[in-house]
Design a protein around this nucleic acid. Sequence first.
DNA 1: AACTCGGGGCA
DNA 2: TGCCCAGAGTT
Length: 212
Amino acid sequence: MLSKAKTMEAIDLIASMYPDAECELVHKNPFELLTAVILSAQTTDVSVNKVTPYLFEKFPTPQALAEGELTEIEEVIKTIGLYRNKAKHIKGCSQKLVAEFAGEVPKTIKELVSLPGVGKKTANVVVSTAFGVPAIAVDTHVERVSKRLRIVKQSANVTEVEETLMKKIPKERWSKTHHQLIFFGRYHCTARKPKCEACPLLYMCAEGQKNL
DNA sequence: AACTCGGGGCA
DNA sequence: TGCCCAGAGTT
């Protein structure tokens, strides 16, 4: 596993590649962001951005979405994939927001994860983006990149990846680094055919040396 | 731990 | 055309 210093060397290089990386969802308030992040599972933010304007025009509040007809919600979001599950999730999520959180989006990970459709990754994105809480949301990109660079051990699960990253990266950089790791994983250190030959981290990447 | 949901993007 | 994907729930 990479030392703390070597890890930051890698993080700095990635940061220099994507200095402006940020959440690409056109989120506004916490409710809209939360709903949009639930919809973004296994889908690109670009796809989600295509349906959310109409979704929130039709269901502007947790109350409205909680009372929305499932078939109507499905109709609006059907172009993003997994839409039946997601329609159920965002409706159920809004119902719980209304019933147990006074229609407000809760601010703790524990409460967020208790909502339908909200897992660890979604909860972290919400507290980070909506409430400015330092967080590292571990998705497949973050996990893959962290493992290839040996920032975390190969056998690490999502929780272990998150803990290791938080330990090695200064807290004030968690949120920004999270987006930069995602951009790096999505556009450069891709799951298939990573661009190792054009990677500034090649010199310190065991996985990359193998790929050449 | 494996299976399911799913249309869009890309080779 | 075929394959994968910014996850989470269920079994």
